[in-house]
């Protein structure tokens, strides 16, 4: 039951937050929704889960529009920074309510995770620190067992240890019970090894939408004396370059022919590729 996102546009007054976004989500993969702050990631996820209404465009699940569609909305859970719980509710009662709404909610697992992270379930959600409020929402997401699980900047505010724990627990859960996960983040390096499919978004537009390996498969970094590098990259699709003294490094996209003497070739990691891509877009 894939989610089809067609031409979703969202305007806030004069600002266009999303610009004809078209995308398909499904297949029990981990998607990375990658982009800088303000790129439109949060807006897209909000629209996907009914918190906001698009200005234009449609979203369907199994062919049915998701608007006012409980069957569809109940299949996707969003873990975002916003606290949507009443002031007087504590973690325990939130878990209890979750069991009401989600028949697959695993209370035991949620309690176990709370203990693991050191989350006190008697505390009011509003009084939790930023880190623990995030942890609370992460635990909810990991326990509801919906076919779609969306994380919007899941590890912001988490200390290194908790971040590590979250990734491991998520992977363990994902390996055991496949579902479609979307991780929206600007922490590209951390997401790199987790995701199978990358969606890069910039200024409300989708730049790339492909399997993660494809992004860096035909991209490489070449470095050496500036003159030699320039000769080599002439006519090629250069994403970015930098110069230090006489040494130039260029990130190139495209097939790589034999390297002349004096130049060094190395693979490019996802974060560097992303930055290069953004720099190229900036230049346009």
């Amino acid at each position: 039951m894939p989610i089809e996102i067609k031409n979703i546009t969202k305007d806030f007054g004069d600002t266009r937050a999303l610009d004809h976004v078209t995308l398909t989500l499904g297949d029990n993969q981990i998607y990375g929704l990658l982009g800088n702050n303000g790129a439109g990631k949060t807006t897209l996820l909000s629209i996907l889960t009914g918190r906001q209404c698009p200005t234009e465009g449609t979203i369907t699940m199994d062919g049915e529009p998701i608007e006012n569609n409980d069957a569809a909305l109940g299949k996707a859970f969003l873990v975002a920074e916003q606290n949507m719980f009443p002031d007087d509710m504590n973690v325990k009662r939130a878990f209890k309510a979750a069991a009401l709404f989600y028949p697959q909610f695993d209370r035991e697992y949620a309690d176990k995770l709370a203990e693991k992270f050191g989350l006190k379930t008697k505390k009011k959600i509003k009084s939790l620190s930023t880190g623990y409020a995030s942890i609370f929402r992460l635990i909810l997401g990991l326990s509801v067992n919906t076919p779609y699980l969306f994380f919007d900047e899941p590890v912001l505010g988490l200390d290194a240890q908790h971040r590590d724990m979250f990734y491991r627990i998520l992977l363990e859960k994902y390996a055991e019970c496949p579902c479609t996960v979307v991780i929206s983040t600007h922490l590209i390096a951390e997401a790199a090894n987790l995701i199978e499919h990358a969606v890069i978004i910039r200024n409300g537009k989708i730049l790339k939408d492909c399997p993660r390996e494809e992004l860096t498969a035909d991209a490489y970094s070449v470095s050496g004396p500036a003159g030699l590098v320039d000769k080599f990259i002439a006519g090629k699709h250069v994403l970015s370059f930098n110069i230090l003294g006489g040494l130039k490094t260029a990130c190139v996209q495209g097939p790589c022919d034999t390297l002349p003497e004096g130049l060094e070739l190395s693979a490019i990691n996802l974060q560097d590729y992303f930055i290069s891509l953004m720099e190229e877009e900036d230049r346009k």
Partner: peptide, 9 residues
């Protein structure tokens, strides 16, 4: 808010 968080339209 709570209903939307918990997947109800």
């Amino acid at each position: 808010r709570l209903c939307l968080q918990y997947g109800v339209s």
